[in-house]
Nucleic acid binder design. Structure first.
Lengths: 217, 217
DNA sequence: GGTCGTGCTGTGAAACGCCTGAGAACCTGT
DNA sequence: ACAGGTTCTCAGGCGTTTCACAGCACGACC
């Protein structure tokens, strides 16, 4: 499932992009109306999430132009304007749904699913490094295609490493993110990296002496 | 365009009826869930406006029953419940849109038009995983073709798992969706998974320690 | 080669998560 | 009121997981 997100507010765009990616969507971002319209025109998207207040061309105009050009890709408008007429305008210009900021992420997802129901299934995003693959959706980890059983802690460590590939991750960083706000003993991390190496092979996680660990790269 | 309005609050029903008639819709009103379901079953409506809190049968149940019976008439839920999970549930049961009371009449109209533009949908009927099959229409569950008798709660747990196959479903997720908004004890889920395993075989529902349960995959 | 500091790993105990049987509470229909 | 079925609570038990500890291995540097 490919989504086009047209949103100029960088922080919101980033957050949505990450959240939706985790749900298995391929998300492209356009930062203004004109680029968004061009991207949507090229097609290939299963749905478009469209902010209303955009530089260069408003979301209303984008969806209107698309519909004028007979492009019926499902469009969900996102807007801080919650006056009844704003909603009505968006929907009458051809949007399929209209969500008011601030919105709950759960609602966005549910409405998105409802909108996409005519289409197929979401393709999962899989984190990879070498021949190790981790699928956050199914929580499955494979080594060269073979499933590997990991304990929750092991899984959490591996996931964090895979989400920050190709760079050194310090032990304290791992302690902070994988353990609760208390653990201070770096040896804990060493122990769990040891477990992972035993299950996934000696070289999947490399030690950077004096700095931390690195996966991939 | 024929509309079915299922709403027990007489004043709101009257106002909507008048307003929508003025727009050129033929509006029939049903005052409780059971009559509403019967009316919608008979077909002939282009869309259904469905209150959630209804006497005799909730709006959720009405839309779920309709979808189970393969009736894909466009449904818009109207509700005072505006929690994210309420919306998500309504939409996941098969509603096409969800409007929170109090709503603006202009918005209702615009969303109604958008919904009618989209038309109905189609979805698969029988849910499967391994040699277990669940037919929501007949509410029948079979194991390798042989019918299996499940209690309502067991059925609900199995249905939720089958609607989210191949991925890990947490106990809290199951508590939220299968039980009412109160239950907190994960052991309840464990007990019911135990019941299901006893009836459907040890391996139909697999435990993912520290995460939840998974079916299929 | 020796020394120091850092990282690795085997052992074992405690905590945890999950499963299950027993039975109480609760319906529902007779 | 009763019987049957269903839902739910509770406590015991078992295997897994987590973690602390201590000794060992190894790289860096002198």
């Amino acid at each position: 499932m490919r989504l086009l997100l047209v949103e100029d507010e960088a922080r919101l765009a980033g957050a949505l992009r990450r959240g939706l990616s985790a749900e298995g969507f391929q998300v492209d971002v356009a930062a203004d109306g004109a680029t968004g319209l061009d991207a949507a025109r090229d097609g290939g998207y299963d749905a478009v999430l469209l902010d209303v207040m955009l530089p260069r061309m408003s979301g209303y105009d984008v969806v209107r132009r698309l519909r004028e050009e007979d492009n019926w890709v499902p469009v969900m408008m996102l807007s801080a304007k919650d006056g009844p007429h704003d909603q009505a305008d968006g929907l009458d210009y051809g949007a399929d749904d209209y969500l008011t900021k601030p919105f709950s992420y759960v609602v966005l997802l549910a409405r998105l699913r409802a909108m996409l129901r005519r289409g197929g299934e979401a393709r999962p995003v899989v984190l990879r490094a070498g021949d190790v693959a981790l699928d956050p959706a199914t929580r499955e980890v494979t080594l060269a295609g073979q499933p590997v059983g990991l304990t929750p802690r092991e899984y959490a460590v591996l996931e964090y490493l895979l989400r920050h590939p190709d760079r050194v991750v310090t032990k304290l960083e791992l302690l902070d993110h994988v353990w609760d706000v208390d653990a201070e003993d770096p040896n804990l991390v060493e122990v769990y990296v040891g477990y992972l190496r035993r299950k996934l092979g000696r070289d999947t996680v490399r030690t950077v002496r004096g700095a931390g660990y690195r996966i991939g790269g």
